[in-house]
Design a protein around this nucleic acid. Structure first.
Lengths: 228, 228, 228, 228
DNA sequence: GATGAATGAGTATTCATTCAT
DNA sequence: CATGAATGAATACTCATTCAT
């Protein structure tokens, strides 16, 4: 009976049916994620150069060769990871684009940074590392440009978003100053605030056992207290 | 025969007195420094892994083989650089060990940090890079311990110094708070201050063309203004 | 369920009668040919080693796996191609086996060579390439032997045919000499003729843009003129 | 005593004297040759792609790594070999550049071709192979151009030399025709001659055991007899 | 003390082949 | 019969380190 049904020349399903493209796509996507996850962990922990494809593959439970079925090269894998995470992260901060930040929103913004650092710890470890090698830094800049090109609309671009955020914060600090009856002559205080955030991020992301979560939460609240 | 010719060609110094061991030692020390300097520059710029012994040697104007006459391995070279610089840098901050910091001394302390970052920019680039790889981080910790062991007297050790500095700053922040009539219940503000310094250092050290020296000087003054 | 959908989509032929084994065999044979054609083109153009199974399969519009359903290995595929083409080509020259070559037949023979080179250009490209690697040459010799074994009757074998052709040509050259009143003491002139044919074949088969078809036709006629 | 003589800071000769640059250059040149020789043999025998660096190195009695001390890549090694041999071979044919070929010179020319084929058999095996892969053919053309660029004077270039030889031969065939009272309307006979030489070269160079040296010498004389 | 040729273990990458579906 | 994910052995190439001179 089964045989009867199968009378066809170009029948895609057959004796032993190959997976459908939907099934395959799911499998592929899952494996891609798995590889990227494995790679990110190693990159974050040991650095890009010290991480070998073998390590990544072994950790992901696949063969070296298979990795190249999903990513054309180690560098492409790195870029893909960074691209993906950056895309995702920027979406978190894509909200207050009217340019006006209330105190509550500012507080939310800081908390959001903390949450993001916590959730994407490995990625930020990698990102910090990348930022520290001038050669790699250049590649990141290229990458950022290509992301922007993909994003097409210039006001959707990453640098545009960065500028937007900077502008929004600048306005916030200005208003704060004016409210206190002081004159706002420059973004100096904002810059200091950014240093603080950077330093906090650096400490949090690379903290191993020294400090606990409570310590960092208190820090976040203190930062909010100081700069709100 | 061929030896003889050579002997007459490139002899620079006296033919009369054999060099003393002190002279030899000086020459050795100079070459060591040269190699370390060359290595530091490459490590800082391209990262430890991307830097080859060949590059270092060529840049230092010596042969690869000779490098191994001065340092047993690439890793040992790295450690030696870090060891040396840390030693040197800690000496800058080895002053106010009475534990009492005046406002002037605090200001001086910040300026001193800035000066040190400027003077040892390459080293800090390397140090930051090293700090970001957990594997390497562990090695650094080992190294620090061995430095302390070498230093022998525990109150001369680096961690001891770090603690000393932290304590001194903690006292300073406490006094400041009390002077303002507020209660000092924790080192939270100090920690925020440390984040700020870290973030500033990170920005300064890896800044390439975005900001100029004036910008950073203003930042330093603002930090002093905020935390003095 | 999902199977069901597929079954209704791409069914081309009759739903009623199961295909006969002859039909199936025809389909198989057509696919075999397709793969061999695709492979030959790639082998000829890029060489055996530079050609991947993936390329062949993609070009033939099938999956890699399916290729292995038709040929047990890349090498077997190569052998099969050579075997097939050699078989086919030798049939072209399987006529004048009475051993007597008239002038008209000689002329036809040369033209036939030219036609064959033109028609099977890719194959000759491949064959020349194969002939130039001693390791591969050995395999070809093995292959030839196995063809002969398959052919069973020794006077049907390729080497036998080659010898036959050589003998026929030798007789032809001998008669020509004698007709001119000269003594024929060796096959030297025949050998030179063979060099000429080889050189012509080589030039024709690997010519890309330098010479046009007219040039080669003139060459053919000149060769006939010189050796008839 | 020995110590006494060695009083110098930047003395190149020392305790255990390193080799002089002349010595080193000799060693290097010898090893370069050795590697190229080993590579040529393998390339000729098994083809470029089927030859591995490991094979070459093992055959040359050195480590894989060392090969890269002399040649930056497998491809560069190939190019270097071809470049070197082509340079050398063209010098053999760099004589009759007045454009006039006597019968004796023509004979010498043919003999010279035979001698060259004999002496550089492996190289010609490689060259024929290279000519048969369109991809590689392109590289060869590039290479030829670069050789010409190096040669600087355009009339020293290889294609120029090729044209020169062709022209000289064309004139020779023309005179021959005219001497016989026939009209020379095209280079057809010359082209046939070139096919013959090609076919002879091909046969000679890839002959393994079928024919002996005597056979080929007779062939050469016959070619001379036919075309002189 | 100084050189650089030499080594070999290690790295990213490729590709014929297998196999579950 | 048909697919393409998966494997693993092989390959070109790199680089820290050694060692004869």
């Amino acid at each position: 009976m089964y045989h009867k049904i199968q009378k066809t020349i170009i029948c895609i399903t057959d004796y032993m049916t190959p997976r459908t493209s939907i099934q395959l796509e799911k499998i592929r996507e899952a494996k891609r994620s798995l590889i990227m996850q494995s790679a990110l962990e190693h990159f974050a922990k040991n650095g890009y150069y010290a991480t070998t494809i073998s390590h990544i593959a072994k950790h992901a439970g696949i063969s070296k060769g298979l990795m190249y079925n999903y990513f054309p090269s180690k560098e492409a894998l790195l870029k893909e990871i960074i691209y993906n995470y950056i895309q995702e992260i920027y979406q978190y901060f894509d909200i207050n684009r009217d340019g006006y930040l209330t105190e509550e929103e500012f507080e939310y913004f800081i908390h959001q940074i903390y949450r993001t650092l916590k959730e994407k710890k490995s990625f930020f470890q990698l990102l910090f590392q990348m930022m520290m090698q001038s050669e790699v830094r250049l590649k990141l800049i290229e990458l950022q440009k290509s992301i922007e090109t993909l994003a097409a609309r210039s006001d959707d671009s990453i640098t545009a978003l960065e500028k937007q955020i900077y502008k929004t914060l600048s306005d916030y600090f200005k208003r704060k100053k004016e409210k206190a009856g002081q004159e706002y002559d420059s973004d100096l205080e904002l810059n200091i605030f950014i240093y603080t955030i950077k330093g906090f991020a650096l400490t949090y992301v690379f903290n191993e056992t020294e400090f606990d979560e409570e310590y960092f939460e208190k820090s976040v609240n203190k930062i909010i207290e100081l700069y709100k």
